[in-house]
Amino acid sequence: MNFFRLLGDLSHLASILILLHKIKTTRSCRGLSFKTQALYVAVFITRYLDLTYRWVSLYNFVMKLFFIGSSCATLYLMRYKYCPTHDPSIDTFKIEYLVGPCAILALIFNYKFSVSEVLWSFSIFLESVAILPQLFMLQRTGEAETITTHYLAALGIYRAFYIPNWIYRYFTEGVVDPIAIVAGIAQTGLYLDFFYVYFTKVMQGEKFELPA
């Protein structure tokens, strides 16, 4: 564990708390992509299968349980409790285009051709693009509630913090995880447009609005 990774994990944790807070206080999942949330459930379950057979640390164990639990809870809230506030007609990104290529990439790029390792690779690749249905939706509506943009910013910053963590680990431990690094850089890259608008508008107290 190092400073950057901790900041990344805390940012990830914060993003989920902001998301649940938004759903609870506005009693609505308006502006949120159900597809993106469903992809995160798939990401966490396929990546954290090792919960059942590998002990890393208490921190690792608790965080994994939290990420699986909170993503399932989010999906439940969106699907059942606040279902009427979700508009499927604007959540139209085809997730087949993400899941298929990620599955193929995972079969090609993995550290060992075993079920758990291929699923782990799959989860890393899928996480890197899981935000696309959400960003696509944002692009379509052209605006977002401020609380939703805080959620997206925290979620984007989380993986960005992992990048200095990997550099740090390379120099201190000699550890390199090319699959996570390439996917993590791609994942952060997808947020650049969003970050630009977030930091130039929302952080200055303006509403999140995309230029027409």
């Binding site: 990830h12 090792d50 690792n60 965080m63 000699g174 390199v176 995880d177």
Partner: peptide, 10 residues
């Protein structure tokens, strides 16, 4: 170069 197969990250 050591591949991180321990997957100790989240």
């Amino acid at each position: 170069v050591i591949l991180d197969q321990a997957h100790d990250e989240l």
